[in-house]
């Protein structure tokens, strides 16, 4: 983690119109203790075998999700399927570069997802800015803003690479190492500070799970 000074997060749901505040939770995110022993292993197995991807094509990477979710590569047979709502999804695929405007939606969608939630980042752009390293509108490292479980390098990574990435994610989940949700809760203020540094018009709720 960076040693950047952490700016205290403002009050919950600040920035929302009052009538909308009620739609969101006021509790800060918290960490969740994994269950014990075999129970957690079983749960992790189920989580790994039922990966529901949030259908949010944030960047070019979405283009290679199409072949993956259609018959040529057929990700359904691996228990992976797209889901149109963040509430029901467990995997967020960051499709490459994230512009500031999209990052805001990414953060919000990510927070709306129910834990345990996993993030797969595609392409160089998510690792170190990729070819948009000098753009004024794209972030360079997605891990500054949300925790990431698996990176797949490439531009674009092919569907096969994506598939391999999901297999890797499965392994990580089964090994109980995919604790992004807890990491996010643990370093919540750091993440928020990073997010707010970049997203200049912060008009969304801080607590949104």
């Amino acid at each position: 983690m960076s040693d950047k000074k952490i700016i205290p997060a403002p009050l919950a749901n600040e920035g929302l119109p009052p009538d909308e505040r009620g739609l969101f939770c006021d509790a800060a995110p918290r960490e969740y203790e994994p269950a014990r022993g075999i129970m957690e292993d079983f749960a992790n197995w189920a989580r790994s075998e039922s990966l529901w991807i949030l259908g949010f094509g944030t960047g070019c990477g979405a283009i290679e999700l199409r072949p993956l979710m259609t018959s040529r590569f057929d990700m359904y047979r691996y228990g992976i399927q797209p889901r149109p709502t963040p509430r029901q999804s467990s995997v967020f695929v960051i499709g490459g570069y994230a512009s500031v405007k999209t990052l805001k939606r990414i953060v919000r969608s990510y927070e709306q997802m129910m834990g345990p939630k996993f993030v797969v980042a595609l392409g160089s752009c998510t690792i170190n800015g990729g070819m948009y390293w000098d753009s004024y509108n794209t972030i360079k490292r997605i891990d500054q803003y949300i925790p990431v479980d698996v990176y797949i390098t490439g531009c674009m990574p092919r569907p096969e690479a994506l598939l391999a990435g999901f297999q890797e994610l499965k392994k990580i989940i089964r090994a109980g190492r995919a604790e992004g949700q807890n990491e996010y809760a643990r370093n919540f203020e750091w993440f928020k500070a990073n997010q707010k540094k970049v997203i200049k018009d912060w008009n969304m709720p801080d607590y949104n799970w």
Partner: peptide, 20 residues
Amino acid sequence: PMMRRDFDSLAYSDATYEGR
């Protein structure tokens, strides 16, 4: 306005977005 020639995209990016 960022398409003006005197706006330096790289400098802005370096100052705003943390690189690895």
